[in-house]
Computed example of a mutant assay.
Amino acid sequence: MPNTLIFVDLPSDDPAAAARFYAEVFGWQNDEKPAGVYHRMVPGGQFPNPDGTDSQIGNLHLGIFDAANARPHPDSAGVEPRALSTTGRKPRIWILISDDDSAERILAAATQRGAKELWRNHYWSTFNGYNHAFEDPWGNEIVLWGKAGPEPKVPADFTRE
């Protein structure tokens, strides 16, 4: 059996504020574990079966941890580094845009809450998707993925690769 990816964690110097940001931008449930130390963001829903019905597999969760003392760790005081990484290439988190939402609404909600729009309106033919990206107020890069469909109609103003 393969090993299974179950979580991705984002650092923040204010996990409670970051959790509010993601709850407001994406509509996810903020599960405090405990408040201000570690927050589990629960998107809800299930992975779909090939026929589009819900499978028994719940969607992945996103964790938000305090960069000053990343939990869990055997040392209750935590270890260095204790600050956010603000330069260089960092991991990116990819979010699939639901069929009843839009990149425009998500980007607007994110920037209204302090995010920085990085780019928008790009079509990636290799994976047949429309992509847009923002940096959250803690420096994490979020890439939005929109399904292009079987015969995509790529808008003229989109960049392509």
Rank of each mutant, 00 (worst) to 15 (best):
P155K: 05
N131Y: 14
G45D: 06
F7Y: 14
G58H: 11
K116C: 04
R113D: 10
R71I: 11
D100Q: 13
K116G: 02
A68H: 08
L107S: 06
R20H: 08
R92S: 14
P72G: 03
V37C: 00
P72D: 04
I57G: 02
D157W: 11
N121K: 15
A23S: 15
E104W: 01
N3Q: 11
L118Y: 00
W94Q: 13
V37S: 03
H61R: 07
S98P: 05
L60H: 09
D14R: 06
A16N: 12
A103W: 00
E32R: 10
I106F: 02
E80F: 06
V42W: 12
K147S: 13
P74S: 01
D101C: 09
D13E: 08
G63V: 08
E117N: 07
N49V: 01
G139E: 11
W94R: 13
W94V: 15
R20P: 00
F7K: 13
A77I: 01
W119F: 15
L10M: 14
V143F: 07
N131D: 11
S85V: 09
L96Y: 07
I57N: 09
P152L: 05
V25C: 08
T159R: 06
T126K: 05
S85F: 01
A133Y: 05
G58K: 13
D9T: 13
R120L: 02
W145I: 09
T126Q: 14
